[in-house]
Design a protein around this nucleic acid. Structure first.
Lengths: 337, 337
DNA sequence: GATCATGGTGTATACGTATACATCATGAAG
DNA sequence: CTTCATGATGTATACGTATACACCATGATC
């Protein structure tokens, strides 16, 4: 195969060396801060700029065995929880000259997502809201591959960061109970979704310790459309609840919208609360009462933990819990008689 | 350097060959569908599975000079326009076994984003809402690097896909004019943002052809917080408009929220309309009147155009316009007297 | 003036894969 | 039996980079 040398192929460090009259090794040193005579370095940098040289990350990673890429697996990009979270992740990574490789594991099948990330030889992976007992995650952990679970509980002895679900759940229940609600419904995720499970457990615990009736629970898989249908059924049923708690803000919004579509007044006839405190929750037009999760802090800690583990795979697994806080807005009020 | 051979290093095709007693070339052929005896292929696949082999994308790309990665540059992840758009992009890419490398060009500085994507040797880049006359884009086009602009106008003779901004703008103006509005304000992006500029021009054109007064225009850079402040100023000023058009849904929501915070009733005292028809626009709690952009189709066409160009860089630049459609909901009504 | 540290550079190699080319066995076709 | 196409495999190489090692010149140190 004749070397095309056409303008199509991007210039390499060898091309620079040829022009500069040095060896390729010197070019590499000049570009990466090795010992090079000042004059030589200047010349090489100038030529590099002129040629429009861009280092080939693939070639570099082959010799350094580090890519500087970090995989991030999300379950549903349309969940408004993610934008801020991802922006913060990207920002934290940028500070260490790393970059984010985002994968959307639609429908809980994270197998393929992980496969791609491994092919790209990412240095580590942040999972958000992966399904409990995910085989893919377990495999990675078994291989001692750097993994951090964000916004979900420990499962296979790897690092994790989550909000204080019991405290948050207790706060919502206290708030609603204080308003006189006794018939509470919950829109939950799938049974295997750990975040959902922990929040639900927290709600149940608090209700029983307050000697209140157990909640109606509908598992919607955190899917917006299914949550709307579920809320509609609840509200048009024989014994509609006086309060609905969405285990994340997305399904709480679904409840709000179902109520609006049915003409059920909020908060006078129905109270709605969520979890996460997504940006839209604070909009005056929505004003959702919700349990704030420190998304930014969660992203920052996830990246920090991941990098510590990348640097030292032998660390003992760590589990961080960030404080949760109830934000009362305008979707909750005294229970209707 | 002694070859570590530890369990830390992922297995390679050479490792498989050693176990299988074949050459590395045969392993490669077996895994990629080359001519290999059925028995041999079976054995190799089994060993591959057992060892947990994952092909090294970097090494592969070095020899094939294709990475299967496509860069996507967005300007603001928190814009609700993106989630669906990105999901569709990912879906279309997946069908061709390609993958998305997402870059958030915060603050309009797309230079760094492009730099990273080039280092990763992406096969092509989809830009969304890049700033008009971006040097980074111009450079790429000059180098004949495959580029598609989504949701923005042609600038440097490269492929692009956009909504029908003039038609959409005309539809909103007609709608508002028909409701009796004569004092219309517009929340725009930055002057260099082409989408914003085209929509604004469309609005101005239609207003003048209807012999209506020119709109008040505030350039907010499509930033939510700035848009809220701008809308608040408009509504508390000496001559508040009877209608506000946001040039995307995000700033339209900002106007809605500013009005709610001020106690300005919508649509009785103020009408609000947007562009994009983001998912939330159809929520009963918001019910935003807006010009629908076919986000899904736009994503699909972008990927299609990009791949055609990757396969044949000599194609003449193409420009596709997708239909826009006004969706009337509950935020627009007859002008207050 | 001999020894030696040191800065600057070139040579050689490894990373993991795909593929062009050569080799060899097998059976069909003449 | 010879010739030849064909299938299966091995050998060798290239991709672009970082870095260990060797080498040389320079000036300092004794």
């Amino acid at each position: 195969m004749v070397k095309a040398a056409g303008p199509g192929r991007p210039p390499t460090s060898v091309d620079i060396a040829r022009v500069a009259g040095t060896s390729q090794a010197t070019v590499s040193r000049a570009l990466n801060g090795g010992r090079v005579a000042a004059a030589t370095r200047e010349r090489i940098l100038a030529i590099s700029r002129e040629l429009g040289y861009t280092p080939n990350a693939a070639a570099r990673s082959m010799v350094t065995s580090r890519t500087g890429l970090v995989g991030v697996v999300v379950s549903d990009l349309t969940n408004p929880f993610y934008p801020e979270f991802l922006e913060e992740i990207a920002a934290c990574l940028g500070a260490r000259r790393q970059h984010m490789l985002l994968q959307n594991a639609a429908g809980g099948g994270d197998r393929e997502a992980v496969e791609l990330l491994l092919q790209q030889r990412v240095d580590g992976i942040v999972f958000t809201a992966a399904v409990e007992g995910s085989e893919a995650v377990a495999d990675l952990v078994a291989r001692r591959f750097p993994v951090v679970l964000a916004n979900r509980v420990v499962d296979a002895g790897c690092d994790s960061v989550e909000g204080d679900h019991p405290a948050g759940a207790a706060a919502v229940v206290d708030h609603l109970a204080g308003l006189g609600h006794r018939h509470i419904a919950v829109l939950a995720g799938l049974p295997g979704a750990s975040t959902s499970a922990r929040r639900l457990a927290g709600i149940r615990d608090r209700l029983t310790s307050l000697a209140l009736p157990a909640p109606d629970v509908v598992e919607t898989g955190f899917d917006y459309d299914r949550a709307v249908r579920a809320a509609t059924e609840l509200l048009t049923g024989p014994q509609p609840p006086t309060a609905i708690v969405g285990l994340n803000d997305q399904v709480a919004f679904a409840a709000l919208n179902a109520a609006a579509a049915l003409g059920v007044a909020v908060p006078s006839r129905l109270s709605v609360a969520g979890f996460d405190d997504v940006r839209q929750a604070s909009w005056p037009t929505l004003g959702l009462t919700t349990v704030r999760q420190p998304q930014v802090a969660m992203a920052a800690r996830s990246v920090a933990l991941l990098n510590e583990r990348i640097d030292d795979p032998d660390l003992a697994p760590r589990h961080e819990v960030l404080p949760a806080e109830l934000i009362v807005r305008s979707t909750t009020g005294p229970a209707a008689s």
